[in-house]
Design a protein around this nucleic acid. Structure first.
Length: 886
RNA sequence: GGGCGGGUAGCUCAGUUGGGAGAGCGCCACGUUUACACCGUGGAUGUCACAGGUUCAAGUCCUGUUCCGCCUACCA
């Protein structure tokens, strides 16, 4: 007996909380370190510990949860590894702001105390986003939750650093880096955002040391001239050939600098002569290296002019610019100024203009690592989906530059390098050394810098699994099966994980990478706080339920396209959640007398609708499986939606109502009940990865089921459900019903008004189908009677419709005026005439007949037959009406 | 400068080997039939951006143009 209790509507707020707790209590998210089942593993893209759940997180994690639940139901030993990222600069900023409210700076506290404060902050607020993920229904293995600053992960960081160092892949040196004057740290090339800005191009004359005249250089940053150590021209530039090797006097500074020749200089740009400031421009730095130029740094860490700037010392770089320009003008060195649109780099964290600056930093020599990461994707050891991203990946990886990994902040993994005060030895070690191995001195000082946060996240796929220990989890789950993340961190994170995974583990970190797009608002604009167009995922969950929200995201996740999110859509899918809820209520109501245990239903007892819906179910199952296998989330979602609503609810349930209500045929009823329950259960399972809460709630309400739907078996196709014959027959019956409904609708006849219909068939096969489907037609077309036979002449006063080789006549006696039917027929006839003209043109074409495939030609001929026949019948019906109405 | 994606119904978008274009929402009409008005039934709406080309046949393949979006780059 199937009993169950479902309230009038599904109430997400209470159910979600209860069910999530149920899953936790039963430990259903837990993966096993060792198991005979095949492993499936996913590591979460760790959200910033400072983060709050936004749409991007929601999409990313919903897609992961869909895949994870799908594979878990398929019987995989499924691990979804959760955790957060310590987000060095961002977190330090947050805590510094907190301190600022108390009127102190981190320097007042000192490094150790400050770090303590950050940990306190983390303990208090760091778990917020984790709890928000739970609201989405994420089935992460929470017992394994990790943090990039954990002891274990820190150990992995030190270990990798030391290995890279000893392999010669880490070096320290004075190089030009992107310096943020506000964060007081170097940042990597990737952390610089370029924006277009209306600036100016100033032309400045540098006079020759000997003789009259001078050379004019063009610059967008006149203040940097204080650090110029050369002027460069192109060696092939006829205008300047004579000047190469000569010297000019740097205005304001009164320093003699050489004119050099370098291929880098573009002759056609500006004046064709470039001032060279090696300490504050990456290109100039490169030129300085080639020509062994002096490097003069003119700013300090706050981008304030230093002692090398002479009288400008103490001025901010932009104040200095004004003053330099004023002075140049006064001294007649300024030749001209023109408006100029150019791009300038900003710190992606604080939007301060980046100052390129030479400083002592640590770098990873990246080319050897990148090479292997390129090969791995080229050899398909890792597959990127959609594959269009592969090109971007190759392009970037091939042109990659060394990675600056040191940061001059406090919050992060301190670089495991110590310096001996006594003998100046550099010690690189995973363990804190007590004495200097060279001189046995004990005065050791650790490197002040910390590592880029991405250095630790690059290790995430194996550090979270226990590396550097050879843990069982690592053995079972590495390489991970799948990474789902946004394309915007392909370089930041994915590429670096690829490199580190291959370097450390000797194998790729993941088999598949699925890159999803951005979530935008309904107008296609990027969501941002300043625009005020943020849609808060938690608000949506409160309002419509997590299931509706999740289903919406899945339904709109088409590969390679951004998602436009709007509330209306979420509401629409809430209606869908309600639909299956009600279908279940109906089922439970009609299964009260169904003996759930040990039922044997002879397949020969199954009705046509039973056979048909199973055939449809089978097709849906393969559609959903294929969709998820190929990460075509929208296809999978659309398949299950279409099936549940428009096949199961719209047709199947309506078709079997008589069998359920009027139990004069016990076998038929039992078969219907059996099929109803079978299809409902399979539908719930198919839907579960998308809508975990409502499906679990329903599952547990069905008294015939025990345990969680989460660990039930995901439907696989059943060959015995395939039934092309049932599909063909049902199709015909549905078409007849639709024909009658169409006439009813077009004639605006009330749905409650019972009609009489006659079906004229052309052959015995159709006759037997109509005969067996008679009651379905009567019920769903709401008829009071149905006549049928071979080649019946159309009765008087009917509306006519053609279905394949059959004619459907609906008696209209006394119901409507015939003009309406006339109009309906004329509309149909016009459409047919167009169709027929189009096809006959094709069939008259000799080329078509000779070159098209036989199948296509045959199809066209059949269509032609059908259309002309239909046309003939409707035409006859029309003329008959004309005679009547005359 | 280079690269990528996109321009299909009023809106948001599907359309995987080239054989007469689909969905959801919205809209219109009718309707409280014992799961559901968070519903049912029916209906309307498209020079598939533009121009060429390949082909018997193009939304789909090729070329060019145009508009939009994104990524990327060391011409000061």
């Amino acid at each position: 007996m199937v009993k169950g209790k479902l309230s009038k509507t599904f109430e997400p707020q209470t159910a979600e909380k209860k069910l999530y707790q149920y899953w936790l209590d039963h430990d259903l998210f837990h993966a096993h370190d060792t198991s005979s089942q095949k492993p499936f593993s996913v590591v979460i893209p760790p959200p910033n510990v400072t983060g709050m759940l936004h749409m991007g997180h929601a999409l990313n994690n919903v897609l992961q949860d869909i895949m994870v639940r799908f594979r878990r139901m398929q019987g995989y030993n499924t691990l979804w590894m959760p955790g957060t990222d310590h987000a060095g600069i961002a977190t330090q900023n947050v805590v510094e702001q907190e301190l600022a409210k108390e009127g102190i700076s981190r320097h007042d506290l000192g490094r150790e105390k400050f770090i303590e404060r950050v940990w306190q902050w983390k303990a208090k607020y760091g778990g917020v986003i984790i709890n928000q993920l739970k609201r989405l229904g994420c089935s992460c293995d929470w017992a394994r939750e990790r943090f990039t600053m954990d002891e274990g992960l820190s150990r992995a960081v030190r270990e990798v650093f030391v290995r890279l160092y000893h392999d010669g892949l880490i070096y320290q040196g004075d190089y030009i880096v992107n310096w943020c004057p506000r964060c007081h740290t170097a940042i990597s090339d990737l952390e610089v955002e370029y924006i277009q800005e209306e600036g100016a191009l100033w032309h400045i004359r540098y006079p020759f040391v000997n003789g009259n005249g001078g050379v004019v250089v063009a610059t967008t940053r006149p203040e940097t001239m204080l650090g110029d150590t050369a002027v460069a021209v192109n060696p092939h530039d006829e205008r300047y050939k004579e000047l190469i090797g000569k010297e000019v006097l740097l205005p304001l500074v009164n320093k003699v600098i050489p004119i050099i020749a370098d291929e880098y200089v573009a002759m056609e740009f500006g004046s064709g002569a470039v001032k060279i400031t090696p300490a504050h421009d990456p290109n100039d730095f490169a030129i300085a290296g080639r020509h062994h130029l002096e490097i003069v740094k003119i700013m300090d860490g706050s981008a304030v002019i230093n002692e090398n700037g002479g009288s400008y010392r103490g001025q901010d770089r932009y104040t200095c610019r004004e003053n330099v320009l004023k002075d140049l003008e006064e001294q007649s060195y300024l030749v001209s100024k023109e408006k100029y649109l150019h791009s300038i780099g900003q710190c992606y964290r604080c939007k301060t203009n980046i100052e390129p600056m030479v400083s002592m930093q640590w770098f990873v020599k990246i080319q050897p690592l990148a090479k292997k990461a390129i090969e791995a994707v080229a050899k398909k050891e890792t597959k990127i989906v959609p594959s269009s991203w592969e090109g971007t990946y190759f392009e970037w990886m091939s042109n990659i530059r060394d990675w600056c990994i040191s940061r001059q902040i406090w919050w992060g993994h301190r670089i495991p390098v110590w310096y001996c005060d006594h003998c100046k030895e550099t010690i690189v070690s995973t363990q804190t050394p007590q004495t200097c191995p060279t001189c046995k001195g004990v005065a050791l000082k650790q490197e002040e810098d910390v590592l880029d946060t991405w250095f630790s996240s690059a290790l995430w796929p194996f550090s979270t699994l226990g590396w550097p220990d050879e843990s069982a989890a690592l053995k079972t789950f590495y390489p991970t099966s799948l990474l789902i993340t946004g394309f915007d961190i392909l370089f930041f994170w994915v590429a670096r994980m690829m490199m580190m995974g291959l370097y450390v583990m000797g194998d790729v970190p993941f088999r598949d990478i699925y890159l999803h797009a951005l979530v935008r608002d309904d107008k296609g604009e990027k969501m941002s706080k300043s625009k005020g167009n943020i849609i808060d995922p938690l608000e949506m969950i409160d309002k419509y339920g997590a299931d509706a929200f999740r289903f919406t995201l899945a339904a709109f996740t088409a590969q390679g396209r951004d998602i436009r999110m709007s509330e209306d859509r979420i509401e629409g899918y809430k209606f869908f959640i309600n639909k299956i809820w009600n279908a279940t209520k109906f089922s439970i109501m009609n299964l009260a007398d169904y003996p759930a245990e040990g039922v044997f239903v002879d397949r020969s007892d199954e009705s046509l609708p039973d056979r048909w819906i199973k055939d449809r179910l089978n097709k849906t199952i393969s559609e959903v499986n294929r969709g998820l296998d190929e990460y075509r989330f929208n296809d999978a979602a659309a398949g299950i939606y279409q099936f549940i609503w428009h096949e199961f609810c719209d047709w199947y349930i309506e078709l079997i109502k008589p069998a359920l209500y009027n139990s004069n045929d016990a076998k038929e009823k039992l078969a219907a009940q059996h099929t109803l329950l079978t299809v409902l259960k399979a539908s719930l399972k198919l839907l579960h990865p998308f809508a975990p809460f409502v499906t679990e709630e329903i599952w547990q309400a069905l008294s015939c089921e025990e345990g969680s739907i989460m660990i039930s078996e995901f439907p696989l196709g059943d060959e015995s459900y395939e039934d092309a014959e049932a599909a063909r027959q049902m199709d015909l019956i549905i078409n007849i019903i639709s024909a009658v409904r169409n006439i009813r609708g077009e004639m605006r006849i009330a749905p409650s008004k019972k009609l009489h219909a006659t079906v004229s068939v052309a052959d015995k096969d159709s006759l037997s189908i109509v005969k067996s489907g008679k009651n379905y037609i009567i019920n769903l077309a709401n008829l009071d009677g149905l006549d049928f036979g071979v080649d019946i002449n159309d009765p008087k006063g009917v509306a006519t419709s053609v279905v394949g080789s059959m004619k459907v006549f609906v008696s209209l006696a006394g119901l409507i005026n015939l003009d309406e039917e006339k109009a309906r027929l004329e509309k149909e006839i016009v459409k047919l005439q167009k169709d027929i003209a189009f096809i006959s043109k094709k069939l008259d074409n000799q080329d078509f007949l000779q070159k098209a495939s036989e199948d296509v030609i045959k199809k066209e001929k059949v269509k032609y037959q059908e259309f002309t026949e239909k046309h003939r019948i409707l035409k006859a019906a029309l003329s008959k009406i004309r005679t009547i109405s005359l």
